[in-house]
């Protein structure tokens, strides 16, 4: 084999850092191009998603108010595209943030349970069980939410609203059907539990053993050890995990579509039905029957969702990446 000359001495020590050029001939070079091309293609796909959405949404940006009403099927009370997207974005953010507020403490609890409380042998099984939640398709969550869960919590919301009205004198309305934003948010919370748990668990397991042992040696109880050693170490990890969960919740379609009875308003009556909807659910319910400008309008709302989730995910990944570099664990 004269084609692959024996590599020079430093390259023999670290062959994977050998850079290109002279030692690569024939198909080796082609193979490098192919695999590099696949990597570039992936970036291209992401760019294409943005590009094609913008191109298809463009007619909706330029259309006048009358066109939007007639051909775009935008409800009459909204004068512009921005006015239509506003309540959708509001509903999406409200549902996702509520889900996040419920899911984050529970996920951190489960992650701590797996990393520091459960017996080692049991911990991996519990990890699998939590991952099982992630494997259940969202349409099945929707089915369960609409047939089982909303019936259960509907009465609870009515009672809750009565109590709030009585004590605080607030004006809370609740729908006994339970097909309200609060119900949808709770189901979303269950759906984003696995991802938040998985990421926080990884971070908690990376806590330097010496820190934990030092805390215990100073007489700390288990909780004090967690509070002084584990949680400060894992804080940024939990934050990014929560943001990844937020990204999931923002884009979740089926559960919201099936549970929530839709409406378009800036309302905080989360126990009442027919007040809110989310971007994704709105698209999925209107798209099959839409045509012409109506499709462009829906794609424009989808573009808004894409931009929001992209920003949230990039921020989350950036926090994770930054943490990796400065973490004391390695």
């Amino acid at each position: 084999m004269t084609t692959t000359d024996s590599p020079p001495a430093p390259a023999a020590v670290r062959p994977r850092q050998r850079r290109s050029g002279d030692t690569e001939r024939g198909f080796s070079r082609v193979f490098r191009w192919i695999s590099t091309g696949a990597g570039a293609l992936l970036l291209g796909v992401l760019a294409a998603v943005a590009l094609f959405l913008i191109v298809r949404a463009f007619p909706a940006f330029t259309a006048g108010a009358e066109q939007l009403h007639d051909a775009g099927k935008v409800p009459g009370s909204f004068g512009s595209l921005l006015g239509y997207v506003g309540p959708l974005v509001f509903g999406t953010l409200l549902a996702s943030v509520l889900a996040l507020v419920v899911a984050t403490p529970i996920s951190v609890g489960i992650a701590l349970f797996i990393s520091h409380y459960a017996p080692r042998r049991l911990a991996s099984i519990i990890g699998y069980v939590v991952d099982l939640l992630a494997a259940i398709p969202s349409v099945v969550f929707g089915l369960w939410g609409v047939y089982v869960f909303s019936g259960l919590v509907g009465d609870l919301w009515v009672w809750f609203a009565d109590v709030l009205n009585l004590i605080l004198g607030a004006n809370v309305e609740a729908s006994p059907t339970g097909r309200s934003l609060a119900t949808a948010s709770l189901v979303l919370a269950v759906m984003i539990l696995p991802i938040i748990t998985a990421v926080s668990r990884e971070v908690f397991l990376q806590t330097p053993k010496l820190h934990e042992e030092a805390a215990l040696a100073l007489g700390a109880t288990r909780w004090e050890m967690i509070r002084t050693a584990v949680l400060p170490f894992g804080r940024s990890g939990v934050i990014s995990a929560a943001m990844l969960g937020l990204g999931r919740a923002l884009g979740e379609t089926m559960a919201v579509l099936m549970i929530l009875s839709p409406g378009l308003s800036y309302s905080f009556q989360i126990f009442d039905s027919g007040r809110h909807t989310t971007i994704a659910a709105n698209i999925a319910s209107r798209f099959p029957e839409a045509n012409g400008l109506a499709i462009d309008v829906l794609i424009a709302t989808g573009l808004a969702l894409f931009v929001i989730t992209l920003a949230v995910n990039m921020l989350a990944r950036w926090i994770v990446a930054r943490r990796k570099e400065f973490s004391g664990a390695n």
Binding site: R248, G251, T253, A280, L305, F306, L310, R317
Partner: peptide, 9 residues
């Protein structure tokens, strides 16, 4: 980042 693209998008 792409793992977070909403399925509907």
């Amino acid at each position: 980042v792409m793992t977070g693209i909403p399925s509907i998008v």
